[in-house]
Computed example of a mutant assay.
Amino acid sequence: MCMSLTFPNQIETSRLFLRAVSESDLPAMLAMNGDAEVVRYLGHAPWEGIEKAEAWFKRVSAQVTAGTALELVLVSKETGQVIGRCGLFEYEKPDDHAMLGYIMHRAHWRQGYMREALRAFIAHGFDTIGLRRIEARAEGDNVASTGLLKSLGFTQEGILRQRWITEGKPMDAHVFGLLQGEWKSSPRS
């Protein structure tokens, strides 16, 4: 059983470093979250100023300090720039499960970066932290995210009808789950 979400010093993949998000990353977070197309399925309006990034960082930092969240940025080895982030949140210690979230700068979409990062991050969640289950949600229209989760071995477990409001209309949330045993027995791990 895991005790709390723990930060790795750094997770390395072939093209990326994953490290803890810091205040110096806020301009990159603003660039991603300020793009309406990037946040289209995230349930919030695009950030319009650094104040939004600072408020997000303050909220996330409190969750990290409490041991209920883990937020990492994806840093390109080639450029040294932050190109995305991934995190675990809604961690519940008694049940050893957490929710997965992720976001990628649009310039890096469809290049396999997020799949590469999440493979390493999920392995950290199961192997190092000791999670039993990782959950994720994707808006029904978010074909890219749904496909990514399935390619990582997640199983769609249900639909939360009209869970989110996006662009003024209710949208369903598809619920996905991945169990530690499934991950360990999968050729993807």
Rank of each mutant, 00 (worst) to 15 (best):
R110N: 14
T79D: 00
L131V: 00
G112H: 07
R110M: 11
A117P: 15
H108L: 05
G67Y: 02
G80N: 00
D127L: 13
A62D: 03
A117M: 04
A62M: 02
G67S: 10
H124D: 12
R85M: 08
G130N: 01
I122W: 13
G80H: 06
V60R: 04
L70E: 13
A98W: 07
S76C: 06
D95K: 12
L88P: 05
L70W: 01
H105L: 04
L88G: 04
K77R: 12
E92S: 04
G112N: 06
T79E: 00
A66Q: 12
A123P: 00
G67N: 09
G87A: 13
T65K: 14
A98T: 06
R59E: 12
Q111I: 02
L131K: 07
S61D: 10
V60P: 01
H124M: 04
T65G: 04
Q63N: 11
W109Q: 02
V60W: 02
Y91D: 04
R59L: 11
M104D: 09
T65R: 07
R137I: 14
G80M: 02
H105K: 08
C86Q: 00
K93E: 13
I134H: 04
K77G: 09
T79K: 01
I122R: 08
I103G: 00
G67C: 14
R132W: 08
A62T: 03
T68E: 07
R119A: 14
I122C: 06
R133K: 14
A107D: 14
D127M: 07
E92Y: 07
R133G: 02
A123Y: 13
R59I: 12
T68S: 13
D95V: 12
F121K: 05
G84R: 03
G84L: 05
D127C: 11
L72Q: 09
L74K: 05
R110F: 15
R119S: 12
Q63G: 12
G125L: 15
R132C: 03
G130M: 02
